[in-house]
Computed example of a mutant assay.
Amino acid sequence: MVSWSEINLLDLLRSVVDILLVTYVIYKLIMVIRGTKAVQLLKGITVIVVVWFLSSLLQLKTLNFIMTQAITYGVLAIIIIFQPELRRALEQLGRGRFFSRELQEEEIRKQAIEAIVKATTYMAKRRIGALISIERETGLNEYIETGIPIEAQITSQLLINIFIPNTPLHDGAVIIKDGEIKAAACYLPLSESPFISKELGTRHRAAIGVSEVTDCVTIVVSEETGAISITKNGEIYRNLTEERLTELLELNWLNQTKSVSGLRWNWRGKNNG
């Protein structure tokens, strides 16, 4: 005969598994829409829900009625608005990638870092100017939209070819997202900081500028000196060697889920322009 304690234990285990599965599915859905305009729409929906709850709590009948109608008929609107993201999620589920994406990301990033470092070193030796931004947690879609779509695998040959002088795509930034070159010839916001060294040009100001408003990592190759620099959190670290560039990319992109405070700690007082 099954005791009440056994029944309660089974119910508890079932509830825990249920909550964990729902949490994981929600997490995966957030990962799918991360870096897209859907994130801003999701914030708007959150505001509507909060206003609805407060209006109900404070018994603001007119406002509560309006919010209730917005939520009731908003389900169809959400399906329409999020249609690209929902379609992408279903495609990933059909390819079996929905639950195995993390297993692929690390290997893709390792190959990408190798290609980026190889291309950067090649261009530095030949004083070919370059500007490469790598998306992390904050989406760069608004800057991707200013450039020419590429959507290509990251290879050193392609990066070098993009930045060859007097070619259509060399002027501007390459933006990397999800292990791909998403776009080239992108416009990045210029920093207006008065503390930037006067010897730094537009590429460096753009690299610092985008790092002030996002958490991306941006690599710069100087056309004048061939020096390699990297920017993050509004700071620039200059005259990097090939080994140091690889180390910083691994620290701040490959292992971005870990602590990234080492960038400031390791470079405090060194080559900070």
Rank of each mutant, 00 (worst) to 15 (best):
G262V: 10
K110L: 11
A130W: 08
G94Y: 14
I48L: 01
L103K: 15
P194T: 12
I30M: 04
E105W: 08
I7F: 10
L13D: 00
N255A: 00
K182V: 09
S191D: 07
L263D: 01
I79D: 08
N272F: 05
E180M: 11
A185H: 10
S15H: 12
S5I: 15
G172P: 03
T218Y: 06
I160D: 02
Q69E: 13
L200N: 02
S261V: 15
K258P: 00
T120Q: 03
K258S: 12
T231F: 02
V220H: 02
D18T: 14
Q104C: 03
T202G: 02
R95P: 05
R264E: 02
I113Q: 01
W267P: 01
R136C: 00
L240Q: 07
I175T: 10
A207C: 12
E145W: 15
A130V: 08
I79Q: 12
R97Q: 11
T167V: 11
L41W: 13
V25C: 03
I80E: 07
I45Q: 04
K182Q: 10
V174Q: 06
K118V: 02
S193R: 04
I108R: 09
E242C: 02
G262K: 09
S259P: 02
N166F: 13
I79V: 14
K28A: 00
D215V: 15
E114C: 09
N161H: 08
E199P: 04
V2M: 07
R244Q: 05
Q69H: 10
A115K: 09
V117C: 00
L21T: 11
G129E: 14
T155W: 04
Y187M: 09
S3T: 14
L251N: 06
R126E: 02
R97A: 05
G234S: 12
V49W: 09
P84H: 14
H170W: 15
Q69T: 13
G269D: 05
L158Q: 09
A206F: 07
M123H: 08
Q256M: 06
V2T: 14
V117D: 01
K43G: 05
N233I: 04
S15E: 06
F195L: 10
E180P: 06
E107K: 03
R136Y: 01
F82N: 12
A112L: 00
G74Q: 13
M123Q: 07
L12A: 12
E235G: 04
V47P: 01
K110R: 12
R97Y: 09
I132W: 00
L131G: 00
V17K: 13
E102W: 11
E85D: 09
T155M: 04
V50A: 04
V17Q: 08
M123D: 04
A124T: 10
V220G: 01
L159H: 15
D178G: 10
I7S: 01
A124H: 07
T218N: 01
A184Q: 08
T138N: 08
N233T: 14
V260I: 09
K182I: 12
V16I: 11
Q69W: 06
S197Y: 03
S100M: 06
A119S: 06
K110S: 07
W265G: 05
W52T: 11
I148N: 05
I196C: 02
N272T: 14
S259M: 07
H204R: 10
I71G: 03
I26A: 03
C186T: 13
I30W: 12
L63P: 08
T121A: 00
F163Q: 11
R101F: 13
N233H: 01
E235S: 06
I26W: 05
